[in-house]
């Protein structure tokens, strides 16, 4: 009986581990939860509160920015791919704007957007967050635009597109319902995962630079706490520096995991998100045979 149960559990795990998408989503969520519980136990309450709000702000800003850039991507793709008056002019304008944005590395655009943030949104946290969502959405809209345009162009070559038009179905309905919702949701999900992780990385890096680089400015707005500015603090720097002690003394790990938690947690959340999204995206591509 015991052996049979053991075999059944083994079979279940074997089946579970075979689905890489399922596996990596589970790894991400479990690790995230484990880090949270560990910090709850060992990190002092004020640092825990600050870290939690930093993670919350980073994820919420990125999540909203992903959704807005998805909508912008759909809008721009529709403007260039659908047939209406002045289509060629609009197509060139949209392509010019997006190509120009795409030709400036994202980090420089976000750094410039922070300059505006510091000048215009002094000490207004909600306005700062909204500005960041807006900036990130504009910067990443091109990623969604390319993905959606490619999907529309692919389906335009199929007979069903012209057949639907002949049947009197509106082009908007074909693009939104038949192409995007029915036939491209996995492609869009994959793009959302990639853009989300890329956004978190970029946003944290720029926040890190701003927190240290512009700290001499008296009028520097009090920026919302994020993973980037947590990592830029002196405490976090010392926490991460403690990792080098492991080479001399591997037993120092216990010390790192209990007393150097702030910086280690911020860095691990960031790295965990990047690794997991890369793995989740890869497994989704394989599972759904996306490309």
């Amino acid at each position: 009986m015991k052996i049979e149960l053991k075999a059944r559990i083994f079979e279940y795990f074997k089946h579970f581990l075979k689905d890489k998408f399922q596996l990596w989503v589970s790894i991400y969520l479990i690790s995230f939860f484990a880090i949270f519980v560990w910090n709850l136990l060992f990190l002092n309450s004020s640092a825990f509160k600050m870290l939690s709000s930093a993670i919350f702000n980073t994820f919420v800003i990125s999540l909203f920015a992903v959704l807005v850039s998805l909508l912008l991507g759909i809008f721009f793709a529709f403007a260039t791919e659908a047939n209406f008056r002045f289509n060629s002019v609009i197509r060139f304008l949209v392509k010019f704007i997006l190509d120009s944005i795409n030709s400036i590395p994202q980090i420089l655009l976000l750094l410039s957007s922070y300059v505006f943030l510091i000048i215009f949104f002094y000490n207004n946290e909600l306005a700062q967050m909204l500005w960041l969502v807006f900036s990130l959405s504009i910067i990443y809209a091109n990623d969604f635009f390319i993905e959606i345009s490619n999907r529309i162009q692919y389906f335009k070559k199929n007979e069903f597109y012209n057949a639907s038009l002949v049947l009197g179905i509106s082009e908007r309905k074909i693009i939104i319902k038949d192409i995007l919702i029915s036939n491209s949701k996995n492609h869009l999900l994959n793009r959302i995962i990639l853009v989300f992780s890329s956004m978190i990385f970029l946003f944290s890096s720029v926040d890190f630079i701003i927190s240290v680089g512009l700290s001499t400015n008296l009028s520097l707005a009090e920026l919302p706490k994020t993973l980037g500015n947590i990592l830029a603090s002196l405490d976090s720097k010392q926490d991460i520096l403690a990792i080098s002690m492991l080479i001399k003394n591997p037993l120092y790990l216990s010390e790192i995991l209990t007393t150097h938690l702030e910086g280690i947690t911020a860095a691990s959340i960031l790295i965990l998100t990047l690794i997991s999204s890369y793995k989740i995206s890869n497994s989704l591509i394989q599972k759904m045979k996306l490309y």
Binding site: F201, S204, S205, F208, L231, S236, K237, I240, L241, I243, S244, G263, A267, L270, I271, L274, I275, Y278
Partner: peptide, 11 residues
């Protein structure tokens, strides 16, 4: 996958 500043800090 580590951001360069994490690697830089750690060493």
């Amino acid at each position: 996958f580590s951001p360069v500043y994490v690697i830089g800090y750690s060493i």
